[in-house]
Design a protein around this nucleic acid. Structure first.
Lengths: 247, 247
DNA sequence: CGAGTTCTTGACAGTGATCAAGCGACGTGG
DNA sequence: CCACGTCGCTTGATCACTGTCAAGAACTCG
């Protein structure tokens, strides 16, 4: 048996307590008492480790659970019959993956770890059962799904209406905002995904993404060195993304 | 008081019974007994009529209810600060509108009737309350939201990876398939939306949409006359949409 | 250190946007 | 019933953004 597999089993046997998790505010409902919180610990069955490049689940696989990212970074993507791939999202700590599987009882996209990662496995039957008992959890589940719908609406706006540089500016601002909410810098970040993956998400080719990065660099808006990015002038980025009124 | 308003009030006072609605299979869970079904009638508070061009709700408005389309046709759209508009979906009988409002307690898009329409108003607190009582309704609500997420994933693929003609082919096939599921023809349809609205949804300009329609017409794949469309060769459309492998 | 991958940059091409004009359908009022 | 105005649709000509192809540089990892 491979060492990773053994580690997985050991880890899985450790009972995880949401009530004791520092990501609680991100993936669980806020503002209710410790007793309820401890009952809610039951939504999480186990943890699971995913090595970089491995799949958490793949399209077509039976749906049983949704997953909360504990550590690491994921992408989700769908692919068409002729092999074209579309990245539909990037997920970081505290975010939920797998909601696409509910409708058909089968996953509808692939979820791939962009770096070594760990997730909380939440069997959806547990989620539903506890939701019936705790209105606050029920409401939370609905909000998580609604948030995903709203996010995808924004992506549609981005893909349907924005130019390459606007898309990249919006992408960077969104990423840094989410990282900042997790206590990281609001000006520096290390991209976990390739230019090609960014391009797929933004509906652009990798060369176009690379050129936009270079242009922002030349203009002094950001500093780029491969996957390291420092945002020098966030206001300039916001201006690019909000509108090109002179056009 | 305007006649329409009086009509609205009269209509609203008529108690609507889902258990007696011929759209039941489309917007309510299937396969449970009459008694439960009658209790589920409580999810719908009233009906509401919306005249062509009027808004069912607008972005920013407080969220209280989701809506099931009974008759008519809607579009939902988001707009950016600088006034660019993105159509995020078209909804027909049996489809649910308003799920975007759950996350922030405020609607996040505009819902506009493309023809005179009627909706069932389902206060979301009713939905949540009954969901706790009826697991089958709970599951149904989750599926409806999940379906919307999956649909938006497909739109992202369309906007990110497909060419103009592929997008239009996919759009027509999807539309006719949904109409057929409602007992209408699988080869003829009357578009309820303008070229500009189709273009907004597909991330194209209206001229491009028009040209693609004309091209399909010249090739004998469809017959187009303004908003009337007849699909002559559905297989050709499917081929266009699935892949352009010779490219 | 070398092989492979990822990123950058340049030259050129193509799809779809833009600008513009004309057509056709529909509704209103004479 | 027809004239007229409006709005939506079609079509043509041109332009530009982004894609494609290609080569080389930089980084990663065994």
């Amino acid at each position: 048996m491979k060492p990773e597999v053994i580690q997985d089993i050991v880890l899985a046997s450790v009972k995880v307590a949401c009530s004791d998790c520092n990501l609680r505010e991100l993936c669980m409902p806020v503002g209710f008492n410790l007793e309820d919180m401890q009952k809610l610990d039951e939504v999480v069955a186990t943890r699971r480790r995913i090595a970089q490049g491995e799949m958490l689940f793949r399209s077509g696989e039976a749906f049983t659970s949704i997953y909360a990212v504990r550590t690491g970074f994921f992408k989700t993507c769908v692919s068409s019959e002729d092999g074209r791939e579309q990245v539909t999202g990037f997920q970081m700590a505290g975010e939920i993956i797998g909601l696409d599987g509910i409708v058909s009882d089968h996953h509808n996209c692939n979820a791939i770890a962009l770096e070594d990662a760990e997730v909380c496995v939440m069997p959806f039957s547990n989620v539903e059962e506890l939701s019936r008992e705790f209105p606050v959890l029920q409401r939370h589940v609905h909000k998580v799904m609604s948030r995903e719908i709203v996010r995808e609406n924004s992506v549609m706006m981005l893909l349907g209406n924005m130019r390459a540089e606007e898309r990249l500016a919006a992408f960077l601002l969104n990423l840094v905002q989410r990282l900042h909410a997790r206590g990281l810098s609001q000006s520096e970040l290390v991209l976990r995904m390739s230019r090609e993956e960014i391009g797929s998400y933004l509906g652009l080719k990798l060369e176009t993404v690379s050129r936009a990065f270079s242009k922002f660099g030349e203009e002094g808006i950001i500093e780029v060195k491969q996957r390291y990015v420092r945002i020098i002038e966030p206001e300039a980025l916001k201006k690019i993304f909000k509108a090109q009124l002179d056009y």
